[in-house]
Design a protein around this nucleic acid. Sequence first.
DNA 1: ATTCATGCAAAACCTTTGCAATGCC
DNA 2: GGCATTGCAAAGGTTTTGCATGAAT
Lengths: 120, 120
Amino acid sequence: LLEVLFEAGEHRSAEELATAVQGRAPDVHISTIYRNLEDLQELGVIVHSHLGHGPATYQLASLAHGHFICEACGATLEAPDELFRGLADTVRAKLGFSIDPHHFAMLGLCMGCQELTRLG
Amino acid sequence: LLEVLFEAGEHRSAEELATAVQGRAPDVHISTIYRNLEDLQELGVIVHSHLGHGPATYQLASLAHGHFICEACGATLEAPDELFRGLADTVRAKLGFSIDPHHFAMLGLCMGCQELTRLG
DNA sequence: ATTCATGCAAAACCTTTGCAATGCC
DNA sequence: GGCATTGCAAAGGTTTTGCATGAAT
């Protein structure tokens, strides 16, 4: 049921997933979606991320990656893990902390919005 | 009113702030707190951050810094901005994106919880 | 008199939970 | 019969909004 659906994209909110599942099985309730998402996370099949102020998004664990989100326009850039390697190494060395760069997005300003800010 | 209160700490949720304000002015409603927090943010006096799954936390903009939060035990480490400089430079060069390392915490595992994971 | 900020209640938003009903072994 | 899973409704936690009152200019 759910697995079939996961072949339909990344960064899906629970509600989007519910709508998609309901296309095939109309009686599936969103609380069931949440419960199954939780189980699948415990199994390590999927992960969720927070991409800003909206609802959490879910995706297959194998597709997980970091994100940069523009605070001004909401643009989403995907971040290859290599970008975080330096930070991860430094933080592990200095604080003994092992970062998970996927769980929460990094916010900031995209190129276009930086220019808008500069122009005022 | 609010400013007086901000001399009382960082990482305060709206509800904690409301309780603190109500110690001096009992009739202040939490919606007023939210409205004033929003105004102060637009003025650049304060910022809010998301330190995990709980409520947003507010603090004076001048005290803002990044955070590393342990996904297992919730421990909070404060992150000097220098740690993010390398990542910020790389991301600006490669993606034209200017990161704000304060807004969302970086999750991961603290030293103690890494060891538990390894043993467990 | 007009504007603006406030208190309050209610809604909105996302997520979790209690419970009764259903299906499976 | 027991056990796990579901649908539904309701609640939970956080934040926002509508509206009427009341203060300040």
